[in-house]
């Protein structure tokens, strides 16, 4: 797809970072307020799709040199393997746990194993959505 739209590009350059920040916020806040792995991943994917739509693919590819299939595979791998972690502690497959820690800068923080699982989910979502869109758009 050829697009040549200066205003769009200028805005996109700025907006993408805002979107990505929002994505990170949504991802991390998922435990206690709306958000989570799916949404975080989707918003990242949406930001990337926005980039691909407004710039040509080669440019963006150069800037973000990931193979998104591998990103997706890595995500699935993380999600599945975290499930086995609980087996080591004699718990059923995929049991999650959480604990509170006193960390410098953050104060009392809740750390959860769900976060790792959700990170996997997010990676899969990003990888798959971008792979799907790119596959179609590139195949000319």
């Amino acid at each position: 797809m050829k697009t040549n739209n200066v205003i769009l590009r200028a805005v996109v350059k700025l907006v993408v970072f805002i979107i990505l920040t929002l994505a990170v916020y949504l991802f991390l806040s998922g435990h206690h307020s709306p958000g989570g792995g799916f949404i975080g991943g989707l918003v990242v994917a949406a930001a990337l799709v926005l980039l691909f739509v407004s710039f040509d693919i080669e440019t963006v590819r150069g800037a973000i040199p990931f193979d998104f299939k591998k990103v997706a595979a890595l995500g699935a791998f993380i999600s599945v393997t975290t499930g086995f972690g609980s087996l080591l502690f004699g718990e059923p497959f995929l049991s999650q746990t959480f604990a509170y820690f006193d960390l410098p800068f953050f104060g009392e923080t809740e750390l959860t194993t769900v976060t790792i699982f959700e990170a996997g989910v997010a990676l899969v979502v990003v990888g798959v959505v971008v792979t799907i869109i790119l596959s179609i758009v590139e195949d000319v």
Partner: peptide, 19 residues
């Protein structure tokens, strides 16, 4: 979480399928 995990796998398969 088991559902979610499998869902993620399905999603991955769909992505690879499209590819």
């Amino acid at each position: 979480a088991f559902d979610t995990m499998l869902e993620v796998v399905v999603l991955l398969i769909a992505g690879l399928g499209v590819y």
